[in-house]
Simulated assay, not measured.
Amino acid sequence: MTSRIRWAAGVALAVLASTSAPVAGATPAQGDIERTDLAQGTTDAPVTIISVGHPTTLYVQQLELGRHATSGWHTHPGPEHSVVSEGSLKVRTAHQCGPVEFAAGQSIFIPAGVPHVVYNDAAETAEAVVTYTLPAGLPVREDAPAACP
Results as ranks from 00 to 15, higher is better:
2 T>M: 08
6 R>W: 00
6 R>L: 06
7 W>M: 11
10 G>Q: 04
14 A>D: 02
14 A>N: 05
15 V>Y: 01
23 V>P: 10
26 A>Y: 09
28 P>H: 12
31 G>V: 07
33 I>E: 07
34 E>R: 07
34 E>K: 05
36 T>E: 11
38 L>M: 03
39 A>Q: 09
51 S>L: 06
56 T>V: 14
56 T>S: 10
59 Y>L: 09
61 Q>T: 11
64 E>C: 15
65 L>V: 12
68 H>G: 15
69 A>F: 00
70 T>E: 01
72 G>M: 00
79 P>N: 05
84 V>M: 14
84 V>H: 07
87 G>N: 11
88 S>H: 15
93 T>S: 02
95 H>F: 03
95 H>A: 10
96 Q>C: 03
97 C>Y: 04
97 C>R: 10
99 P>C: 10
99 P>V: 02
100 V>T: 13
103 A>F: 15
103 A>W: 15
105 G>C: 05
106 Q>I: 09
111 P>M: 03
112 A>P: 04
119 Y>D: 14
119 Y>I: 02
124 E>Y: 05
126 A>E: 15
132 Y>L: 05
132 Y>R: 15
135 P>L: 06
137 G>C: 06
140 V>C: 01
141 R>T: 07
144 A>Y: 00
144 A>K: 04
144 A>E: 00
147 A>M: 01
147 A>F: 00
149 P>Y: 05
